[in-house]
Design a protein around this nucleic acid. Structure first.
Ligand SMILES: [Mn+2]
Ligand SMILES: [Mn+2]
Ligand SMILES: [Zn+2]
Ligand SMILES: [Zn+2]
Lengths: 150, 150
DNA sequence: TCGTAACTGCAATATGTTTGCAGAAGCCAC
DNA sequence: GTGGCTTCTGCAAACATATTGCAGTTACGA
């Protein structure tokens, strides 16, 4: 477990087990992706087949609690995990194809201030649901075909 | 089933059953709230105890498909339902107490344009996660107590 | 190297949602 | 109104995701 995660765990008295190392490594090397607990488990098991899914869940819970990993809701079925970066970001989810895009925190400064002034709310993360560029043009082409004969 | 939901269902050839009527009525009279399938079922069963949860799920799925009801993700465990209003709105969720506040669509025009310009994305709904005013002041009081003796 | 508390694997459990099926009932034609 | 066809419902079982109890294993400081 390279990086500060090693130190954090050991400094806080948690044991540095191969399972924890592997979970962290999987998340680190898939930076930018959003993995479910099962995705993480599958990747860990590729190298270390006996690792159990419940251990992965427990490890993710631990890392999330320590703010080394971020747990995100991108729809309603499962939870997704990614390493917690220094600069936070937000998510833009296409409801048709499921693609997830990132949005910098900077671009939401006005929204953050709005929420703060209107509701006294401190925004931590935002998720936007809608239709991505690709699906949008696919739909429009369909519409054109549909209305093509007047 | 008052209102356009009656017409819509019958015009499209769906049968107007008491179960469907009750589900719709429950959602209509709790306007502004966010009910899980079980919440809806419990309220339906208060008047009509034999109605089954799976029927409620099937009815919600139908109404969502017809865009009479809106299904929203406000965290990760369950799905929540509310009547689909003419003017859409967005959700602001406190991660500490779970309170959900509403935000008008108008206030997100700039964000909508941003997403459209930057990603070609058509935003339909947004959810903001963070800390509400109440929880924020509770936390601050705690901090003050904590740092009270220099 | 040893001892102990923390951790893991496994199986069982919890919770939310979906599905197959047989019987019930809405709705249209008469 | 009555019948008949087809959709819909209740029920139970299955499914998907996440959690937990426990016995055995392992990390790690002494
Ligand atoms: Mn992300
Ligand atoms: Mn709402
Ligand atoms: Zn898409
Ligand atoms: Zn709160």
């Amino acid at each position: 477990m390279t990086h500060h995660a090693t130190r954090t765990l050991q400094e806080l008295g948690y044991r540095l087990t191969p399972q924890r190392t592997m979970v962290w490594e999987v998340l680190r090397r898939t930076r930018g992706a959003h993995l479910s607990a099962e995705d993480v488990c599958a990747q860990v098991q590729a190298d270390f087949p006996h690792v159990n899914l419940s251990t992965v869940y427990r490890t993710l819970e631990l890392l999330v609690g320590l703010k080394l990993v971020r747990e995100t809701c991108l729809g309603s079925d499962r939870r997704y995990y990614e390493v917690e970066e220094e600069v936070p970001h937000h998510h833009v989810v296409c409801g048709l194809c499921g693609k997830v895009e990132h949005l910098s925190d900077d671009s939401l400064q006005t929204t953050r201030h709005l929420l703060n002034h209107v509701l006294g709310f401190e925004m931590r993360e935002a998720t936007f649901f809608g239709v991505c560029r690709t699906c949008l043009s696919a739909v429009n082409e369909g519409e054109e075909e549909h209305h093509a004969h007047p």
